[in-house]
Amino acid sequence: MKEPQDSVPPRWQVLVAEARRDQPPDLDPQAVLRALRSEPRERPAPVASGWWPEFAGLFGSRSVFAGVALATIAFCAVAVWQTSLLWDAVMPWAELIAGDESLFTGGLL
């Protein structure tokens, strides 16, 4: 689309040409600097959203939360592993006491 520069009256063009010459009044940049100095340096913490706020109160930071989560997973893995060892250790005795080898294995062995 062609810019219709000629569609405005000559009065407009004169007005624009004169207005462009207008210079701003002198402002003291120190006023801006004073305003910046009075601006609080610490910004308010952003409002968190999603699942994290639920846990934030308990763990304080994401890295603590990640550490606790990893420790919990490791503990569960070891527990499962140990339980299976325990099962292997206890079963023969249980079967011996019960006098039936298929009592606990369901006759699968």
Partner: peptide, 9 residues
């Protein structure tokens, strides 16, 4: 004159 034109603009 420029200030007046700017105001009118």
């Amino acid at each position: 004159a420029a200030r007046a034109a700017a105001s009118e603009f």
